[in-house]
Design a protein around this nucleic acid. Structure first.
Lengths: 123, 123
DNA sequence: CGGAATCCTATTTGATACTG
DNA sequence: CAGTATCAAATAGGATTCCG
């Protein structure tokens, strides 16, 4: 596995000081809200996540998980079994995102409604 | 000026139904949080914004404003004067973002702190 | 003043195939 | 099972120049 810093965001002076952008950057990613949703209740295995996210490729899933890991949001636990088992769970820091996610969901639902689109739960 | 739909996000079935992603997509953009910050208190002219956002190019500013406009967040008002004057302000929908921004700012500040980075107000 | 047009680069995302 | 490697495509963002 590559080093965690290989998945850190690139340098950007604005992001390094703006809390709002810092938060958005953590959540920005094709599958990140869905992954966080899946991990909200309990730890999940790699293959669980792949099954729960129709259309995601192995590479995409790995990348998003590594980025979330590098941001301290998810914890990767490898069990020394054969075949290997790897579980992903939320860290305390990751769980602290739930309020933010709730606000985003509320506002986003209103936004979709304005556009005449049907809002449903992230899956 | 081009049509508003030219600045709409591309098709993505997941975004079209996930409120969280919808909200994030509206706020995702190199300068959007800063622009919203600038417009929070009062309407600003194009050149005001350019001056308030060091490093932004004319094209980038135009693009971000058009996207925010197409999302119903900002209102563009052209005054028939010579030379032309254009003001940008928040719509009601845009003002309704403030709670979300506050949550993002709170969480983002904690996140930056964890990383040993100094948080400051978006500018 | 407030942009638009063009060109270019960087980053993100996806598809496919392969492996300890 | 849980990835990695490689390639290709799409998207975002910036630089420069020009215009009504």
């Amino acid at each position: 596995m590559k080093a965690a810093r290989d998945y850190s965001p690139k340098i950007d002076p604005l992001r390094d000081h703006c809390p709002v952008r810092a938060a958005i950057d953590v959540l920005s990613g094709r599958w990140k809200p869905s992954i966080l949703w899946e991990l909200k209740a309990e730890a999940r295995r790699y293959s669980d996540l792949q099954g729960a996210l129709p259309g995601i490729s192995a590479q995409a899933l790995t990348l998003q998980l590594r980025q979330l890991e590098s941001d301290g949001i998810v914890l990767r636990t490898v069990y020394a079994e054969i075949p290997a088992r790897v579980e992903y769970s939320l860290t305390d820091h990751g769980r602290s995102l739930s309020q933010v996610m709730d606000e985003l969901e509320r506002w986003g639902a209103r936004h979709l409604e304005r556009e005449g689109k049907q809002a449903c739960i992230c899956r």
